[in-house]
Design a protein around this nucleic acid. Structure first.
Lengths: 194, 194
DNA sequence: AAACTCGGTGACTGAGTGCTCATCAAAAAG
DNA sequence: CTTTTTGATGAGCACTCAGTCACCGAGTTT
């Protein structure tokens, strides 16, 4: 790898890093390519030297992210095949660093078919892990015999509902931190036998 | 009221009606003022004769809508002070005609402070009704002693989750209709004693 | 019937967008 | 050292948007 190739790779990675940062902070639609270029300290046109267009830029970022989160969750499920632990660790995971997926999911209806399909695919992966964990609890006779798919929707919906509102409440200084433990506690309470 | 004033009022109402229709269909951000004017058969500039800007247009629509839904829900709670019935009727209500609020909530993070506050206010009204209904169930010893606020979030989250995905699934022809009864059934199952 | 009023018009503005391409300069090749 | 290659540049393109304003003509008043 010569000097030119190294520089090129570096610029490419810089764009990816800055773009991801800004997409997370402001969403996809609210981030302009000019802003990305400006913050990265490169020319506007450089972005389109490395990526066909704005969409293929986020798709690459999303795919990298998907790979990472998939292996993380997979690991998580293997380590803790128990709903409560899984739930707790998942909440910590998405709490720790603002997740690109969560931000993208907010703008879901406005994206291209391709990106939407990818986002829903990621969602289905996470859902399937919760599904499995609940199913096992039922089989072990620890959980009530509920409709698993709907229970997962409740769970997922509550988490997303919280994440959707989080940036607003955080900005307004309201305390919503107790939400995390209470989600775990309540769902446990709801699903455990007596 | 002379001819001119009648015409003016008529035009104003036409704009409100068409705009609401289009905001529901395509969202606020994806509807242009030109589109509204074109569909209403008026000049683009006429809109700004009646409303200061695009935002004050939707705010007026939203306020009218809020008034209507508030009284409807209030009535609903008085008629059926029981969670299952309330839930069922609420789901039917938002199912029947695509709700402006639901559409707006999808774009929530991208709006002005004022509009966001209004949307969250409407949300809090609905939540409080569910809250009340669950609390009563617990007091009557029919429901399990859960954390009510979180239970409402589960419920609300599940409904919103469904509504958020609905337009996508409907477009793709997938069947999601069984979701509505299963949400009621599962929540009832989760919250009822034994 | 003339003068005035005022709601409606739509070409226009200017700020923004994603994206392009002639040009440049530094690195690589000869 | 000279020529060629190539990544980066940024002014500028075509386009979209919300919002403006000089003008028109029907309605109202005198």
């Amino acid at each position: 790898m010569n000097k030119r190739q190294i520089q090129k790779k570096k610029t490419r990675e810089l764009i990816l890093r800055i773009a991801k940062e800004m997409f997370i902070k402001n969403g996809f639609l609210n981030t302009t390519t000019s802003q990305i270029a400006q913050k990265a300290g490169i020319a506007h046109g450089t972005i389109f030297l490395h990526f066909k267009n704005k969409e293929s830029l986020i798709i690459e970022i999303f795919d990298l992210e998907l790979e990472e989160i998939s292996s993380t969750i997979q690991e998580l499920v293997f380590k803790a095949f128990d709903l409560e632990q899984l739930l707790k660790q998942y909440l910590e995971l998405i709490q720790e660093e603002e997740d690109l997926f969560v931000v993208l999911a907010r703008e879901l209806p406005f994206y291209s078919e391709e990106l939407r399909r990818k986002i829903l695919f990621r969602e289905s992966i996470i859902r399937s892990h919760f599904h499995k964990a609940i199913e096992i609890g039922i089989r072990k006779n620890r959980y009530r015999d509920v409709d698993v798919a709907t229970a997962v929707t409740f769970l997922f919906g509550a988490i997303n509902h919280y994440l959707r509102l989080k940036p607003i409440f955080v900005k307004e200084g309201s305390v919503i931190e107790k939400f995390k433990p209470s989600i775990i506690k309540t769902f446990k309470h709801l699903i455990l036998k007596y």
